[in-house]
């Protein structure tokens, strides 16, 4: 079957920065805001999303010729729900404290727009190698976005990074606790989005993709 559309390598590279799911496509905001109060929950969530995205993309790409047009979103969602159940049970069994911290946001990966969008845009139209490359690229891009936001919030709010104390240990009054609470999440993401748009336009013209939300 002829492979029309971007090659696997292009899909992989696009997913990391040019079509970064959080900063460019503005997808998957719910876990981005919710689990980035520390680096450890953020990286666990990135790993879970990577697992579900890769598996769902692979399966969808393998059955792409059997999908009826008006039922395809339901089929994507059921596939994703199966893998999320696996990921959730795995986390509950082997990383119970982290599973409690992540709370309801692991099952919410089911309705995460990133995975459904990648299934719809890429996996249902291209062969398994391209879908796999797309999934890996987007997962790396998502992990990068989560890491930047979580680093800012954790360092400013707690003075630690990945749980290791860095600054402001002993002088607790300098910790900007708001960063660990919901308002801090919104404001950090807003400012970092602005920064990403500014860097993109300074590097030449890529900010057009970031403005598509207007």
């Amino acid at each position: 079957m002829p492979n029309d559309g971007p090659t696997p390598l292009e899909r992989f590279i696009n997913g990391i920065l040019p079509e970064n799911p959080v900063y460019r496509l503005l997808l998957g905001m719910c876990p981005t805001l919710a689990v980035t109060s520390g680096m450890k929950p953020a990286m666990t969530m990135a790993a879970a999303v990577a697992f579900v995205l890769i598996c769902a993309n692979l399966i969808t790409s393998l059955i792409r010729n059997l999908l009826k047009p008006h039922l395809r979103i339901l089929v994507f969602t059921l596939t994703i729900a199966t893998f999320v159940t696996i990921a959730d049970r795995f986390l509950q069994a082997y990383a119970w404290p982290m599973s409690k911290v992540l709370g309801p946001y692991v099952p919410l990966i089911i309705v995460n727009c990133i995975i459904i969008c990648r299934c719809e845009v890429c996996a249902s139209k291209q062969s398994p190698p391209a879908a796999l490359a797309d999934a890996i690229g987007q997962s790396i891009g998502f992990a990068l976005a989560l890491a930047t936001i979580a680093s800012v919030r954790e360092i400013l709010g707690d003075g630690t990074w990945m749980g290791l104390p860095l600054i402001w240990q002993g002088s607790e009054q300098y910790k900007w606790v708001l960063m660990l609470l919901p308002p801090g999440a919104f404001i950090t993401l807003g400012l970092l989005l602005g920064a990403a748009n500014w860097i993109g336009s300074a590097l030449g013209g890529r900010a057009k993709a970031g403005r598509s939300a207007e």
């Binding site: 807003g190 989005l193 602005g194 500014w198 336009s201 900010a207 970031g210 403005r211 939300a213 207007e214």
Partner: peptide
């Protein structure tokens, strides 16, 4: 300009 759209909304 960088904040227009989603940035200022957040």
């Amino acid at each position: 300009a960088p904040l227009r759209g989603a940035g200022i909304t957040l």
